[in-house]
Design a protein around this nucleic acid. Structure first.
Length: 129
DNA sequence: ACGCTGACTATTA
DNA sequence: CTAATAGCCAGCG
């Protein structure tokens, strides 16, 4: 028999503590995954789409665990209301987020997205909410 | 169980 | 324009 390993990595969505959770976090991940290539959105927009516009912080916290979620969540496409890469420090390297955005054709200057307004993708609009 | 922290946002000075 | 403050709510020590 094959040896094994494997562990219980079958966890899907998980909270930062590592336990399964299907609440707000899961919804956030799904919405963020809908962000098309070369587009970006804000925490507040996602939160508002979920009916919790006042809980933008929770969206940001959800992103904190996005790295361990499958499929991968394009957290680099989520920035704050000013188009600033507030979460760049939470990636592998401080430049990873900026690098990824530039790779998708998004211009970044001084930790801020150029034409943020133009590239902004409203989840409520695409999800028909 | 209580209190602090935080990848946010809006308001006010 | 920048700075400070309040509201928000889940996770962690």
């Amino acid at each position: 028999m094959p040896p094994k390993k494997k562990k219980e990595e079958k966890l899907r969505i998980v909270t930062p503590s590592g336990k399964r959770d299907q609440s707000f976090f899961d919804l956030v991940y799904e919405v963020v995954r809908q962000i098309p290539y070369g587009r970006i959105t804000s925490y507040g927009a996602v939160a508002a789409c979920l009916g919790a516009k006042s809980s933008a912080r929770m969206v940001g916290w959800a992103m904190n665990g996005s790295h361990r979620v499958r499929p991968k969540v394009p957290a680099h496409r989520v920035v704050n209301r000013n188009g600033m890469l507030s979460g760049k420090f939470h990636f592998g390297t401080p430049t990873a987020m900026e690098n990824l955005l530039k790779k998708e054709g998004i211009q970044v200057k001084d930790d801020r997205v150029i034409d943020f307004k133009k590239l902004f993708w409203d989840p409520a609009d695409e999800l028909g909410v």
